[in-house]
Design a binder for these strands. Structure first.
Lengths: 360, 360
DNA sequence: CTGAAAGCGCTAACAG
DNA sequence: CTGTTAGCGCTTTCAG
């Protein structure tokens, strides 16, 4: 082992002596700063400084210490550091729920987007708000910052809780009234409007709507977009063409089955997400109709599978990954104390025309 | 505020005095054990004991303290507790990778399965092994235990690392040679065999294979199952009917396009996961063929969308969620020091017949 | 049953 | 540039 000793070792300490000391360290489970200090005859402060790249230390000693630390596989004790620094090195990524109406694709893209930005020194802690009765476990000493993927006003309770505790918070996916907050979301209304406009441009006089979970902000925003498009094109809104879903495939299927029973069925459908669009497509097919010949359909999200359907699904792309990564970057700045302008950022949406819409 | 004081408060401390003391606490960000101790004129040791439900304390004082703590919204400082107890209260959930070949559905089901079991006192830390150059950051003081969702032998390095550090580890999704480990996975081989057998039973004389990432254990196991089924039915193996994919939809599409160019194309295809099956279905459709008339296809995983395709996809269900939750339970036992028998658990797979297979 | 004292490993004034 | 000292909030001996 002593053959690997870096040459920069203290001249005061003979190589043999050092070997002896390392030996005496024995089968210690983990090396501490004190160990290194004793080994090199310096104070533990000096070691701490070296390891934290402090400027208050000579390059020589720093190198000596850093080398030794590496050799001994020193790993800092995060609990100790956390205790004294009052930081947890935990970043929370909280979803309103981990089950049901959070679609797999959405979840995946979000976690992926955040994880790609978060630094190695942080733990990314994933959780569903609905898992717990209260928020007591969310504490400034346990989370340096939190990214909330919000769906509805029900989450406001949590937002206020966080404000109270002064825990840095970034809210994704839903407009938040608090101006002091960083708030990143996609332009749901604009996207929905574009989707419906596209159907109208393609000659559809009637556009049915399959809605998401009532109460979710994405649902109301996309409904607004739907309304706007209809109104601007002088198309009257028919209640019988609007069905509620809950963002799951099954709900899309059920909603479509109902729409098929309307006396004068629409020629086109806008589903508020791709999963419900799939469900609707399944319902249409199982009823003996075909897409886009009998029905045109547009989804929302551009889930990764939407290009692979038959027919491929026309949809609205909103980069969930970008929302997530921008949110994560903002949170990191917030945690680092970098002053960033709070406020709302809309990530653009874009219509992706594919085969599920027919021009009439 | 003093109206809400519980009646059990120390008689030694008059209500007014207590109010005064609480006042003096002022706008402290967080209440500590010491605060409570001072408030109630007991030692901080006593408070600690009460809060930890120690038997070395009278019911009366315990109640008094617990009530006060609740009233003051006391939250323990996990860093401090961790430091002294040498536990992090972090549970790691590590994937070989967070991108690419980890499908959204798989990821979602796994996280969901684990999160449903993990106790509130733990943080669930999600990570991809490929995000980092080394494993130094994975430390026994930073993770009480880790669940590894493994794909290939490349992850062995990590497994050994964990063994060395004696960090409790549960490995999911892939057979691990180490007998001392808890190892939970689905019966990939059996599932694949069932899938291929099903095609053969339905009169198919030729079954093409679309494989997963070469090197992934799921890939080789499922290939084995494919071979076994063919051999037991006296069907010869044709190399031209086997294409490699990487578990993504696009790879399934490409593989199928190649299979369509074979001189005598097969009447059926077994794709090693549902995503590739979708890709294959897209390729078949775009080439002007239809399913199941021209080609029968079976997937693997029973992803939630497979029932909603047109035609719906015959596939093999393996409960990823169950693998995950069983793994999490085992890890929790391990962390708690409960002696559990290590070893391998196979979660059963089950063929789910749907419309994508035609009987000839 | 309760309290006093020690110490976990680290960082951060404050002196030299 | 380096060392001394103190202390983060908690649990845990060890004495009463």
């Amino acid at each position: 082992m002593h053959r690997t000793f870096p040459a920069t070792f203290s001249s005061k300490v003979a190589s043999e002596e050092l070997v002896f000391r390392v030996r005496r360290l024995g089968v210690k489970i983990s090396v501490t700063i004190k160990d290194i200090a004793r080994l090199l005859d310096v104070s533990h402060t000096t070691v701490s400084r070296a390891l934290n790249d402090s400027p208050l230390i000579s390059e020589a000693t720093k190198k000596r210490i850093v080398d030794t630390a590496k050799m001994l596989n020193y790993v800092p004790n995060y609990s100790a550091r956390s205790l004294v620094q009052n930081r947890s090195y935990n970043i929370g990524l909280f979803f309103a729920t981990l089950g049901g109406s959070t679609s797999a694709d959405f979840f995946y893209e979000t976690v992926h987007g955040v994880a790609g930005v978060i630094d190695q020194c942080y733990n990314l802690v994933v959780n569903g708000l609905d898992q717990f009765d209260d928020f007591d476990w969310v504490d400034s000493r346990r989370f340096d910052g939190v990214i909330l993927v919000s769906q509805s006003e029900r989450d406001d309770q949590f937002v206020y809780y966080m404000q109270e505790r002064k825990i840095p918070l970034v809210v994704l996916n839903r407009k938040i009234a608090l101006e002091s907050l960083v708030n990143i979301l996609s332009d749901d209304r604009g996207g929905a409007k574009a989707a419906v406009n596209y159907l109208i441009e393609n000659g559809h006089k009637e556009v049915a709507l399959i809605g998401g979970v009532p109460g979710f902000q994405a649902t109301s925003e996309r409904r607004e977009g739907y309304f706007e498009a209809l109104m601007e094109n002088g198309i009257s809104i028919r209640g019988s063409l609007m069905e509620d879903g809950d963002f799951t495939m099954e709900s899309g299927r059920r909603a479509m089955l109902k729409l098929l029973e309307v006396t004068t069925p629409p020629s086109s459908v806008f589903a508020m997400n791709d999963e419900m669009a799939i469900g609707a497509m399944a319902a249409i097919a199982s009823s003996g109709f075909s897409i886009p010949e009998d029905f045109s359909i547009v989804g929302f999200d551009d889930s990764r599978f939407s290009a692979y359907f038959t027919p491929s699904l026309t949809t609205v792309r909103r980069s969930i990954g970008e929302v997530a990564s921008r949110g994560a970057k903002a949170l990191l700045d917030l945690v680092d104390g970098t002053t960033i302008a709070p406020g709302r950022v809309f990530v653009e949406t874009k219509l992706i025309p594919r085969e599920s819409v027919r021009h009439i």
